[in-house]
Design a protein around this nucleic acid. Structure first.
Lengths: 210, 210
DNA sequence: GATTTGATTAACAAACTTGTTAATGCGAAG
DNA sequence: CTTCGCATTAACAAGTTTGTTAATCAAATC
């Protein structure tokens, strides 16, 4: 049982939780403050009391999610003391698992965050240094391996985009993928397990680590 | 110069064009019928005169776009008389070029189509047979090659998802990708040219055609 | 026990959005 | 020339949505 089921939380938290759900499901334009208040089990005046406007409430959720993205990038390409192959494996798997644990996040980011220039700028400032150092680091290691003939010389930035592309898509397109694929692979969850392995293999194959 | 700039088209067409733009940019919930009418240069009563409701106008756009998807799947995995490698190459490139020519389509499909069960069903019925025969066909060919030791035995359905994932993502995430990558690869358009090659290579590498 | 302070409610108001309608224009058919 | 039918317009109506406010409640403080 949850430590706190939603009715025992304070009003502000209840509104935040309900708002996140509503904004994720319907987007900013489709979300209704009255609907959020109802889901939170409070009058809709409370929503304005705590957050003034729909917009400020939305911004609150957006900042929180943008910060989450920082985290995943950090844990992104695994522990730096591992050999390249293990590190890539760990990075890909962690990334896949993170998306899997937050399945509606990519859609939210693409739809609601990337559509607003201020938010893009926020994201960029939040992730720029982390991503840059991660890429530089990874590129150096790949180049080392490649110089010894142990792997192909691939562009680290491209590799990162490969990983994100492969991991994110099955979740964003879940409604079609799950239906179109259901009969061949059993349940969607079973498919995801296979897909995770598949993505890892695709990436390692591209590197051709020997 | 365009054969017909928008003011010379008939009212119905002008509304349809403005509606597509509005729905693509803002989604169903965010779109305003008055805004569509204004962009089309007609009174907003005309919109209701021709299409009755916002919903019916939206459905019109959605059907059109779902049909476009059928086309791309058809041209998807190239001419069947080509050898496997060339066929895959042609398929991947055509797919990439199609998405490139309709950059906002993936977002629209994910946000506005996949969010509605009726539309998912529409898409499925539209594409099911085409996709199935394409996959069966491709799988047979891959298995042939693999039996002769000419390539790895990969799952055709997974390969298809790989291709779509890799090709679609750079466009859906364009706002971050273009910014985060700009300095390393020149313009975003230059990046796309490289990305297309990269994706093809990733796919062919996975197949390891010899 | 009275008072103060923050939380909560119900009612309301303003703005916006979709959709309708009655009147008008205008070209083609008779 | 008139009439008929379709296209178009302006005005309006109903419903929805966000946000405010004045009154009330409850708990802590004096």
């Amino acid at each position: 049982m949850d430590k706190e089921s939603s009715h025992s939380l304070n009003t502000e938290t209840k509104i935040l939780q309900a708002a996140e759900k509503e904004f994720f499901e319907k987007g900013y334009a489709g979300a209704r403050t009255a609907s959020i208040a109802e889901a939170a089990g409070v009058t809709h005046a409370m929503l304005h009391y705590y957050f003034r406007t729909k917009d400020k409430l939305f911004e609150r959720i957006v900042s929180e999610k943008i910060n989450m993205l920082g985290d995943i990038v950090l844990s992104g390409i695994g522990d730096s003391e591992l050999p390249l192959e293990d590190r890539i494996r760990q990075g890909v798997e962690r990334h896949f698992d993170f998306i899997s644990a937050h399945r509606d996040l990519p859609k939210f980011i693409v739809n609601e965050v990337l559509a607003r220039p201020e938010h893009i700028e926020m994201m960029r400032q939040n992730a720029r240094h982390i991503v840059n150092s991660l890429v530089d680091n990874l590129q150096r290691e790949i180049d080392d391996y490649a110089a010894q003939g142990l792997c192909r010389r691939v562009d680290a930035r491209m590799l990162l985009i490969d990983i994100i592309s492969l991991n994110v898509f099955p979740f964003m397109a879940a409604p079609i993928v799950s239906g179109a694929i259901g009969d061949s692979y059993g349940s969607y969850e079973e498919f995801l397990v296979m897909r995770k392995k598949e993505n890892l293999e695709t990436i390692l194959n591209k590197l051709k680590i020997r």
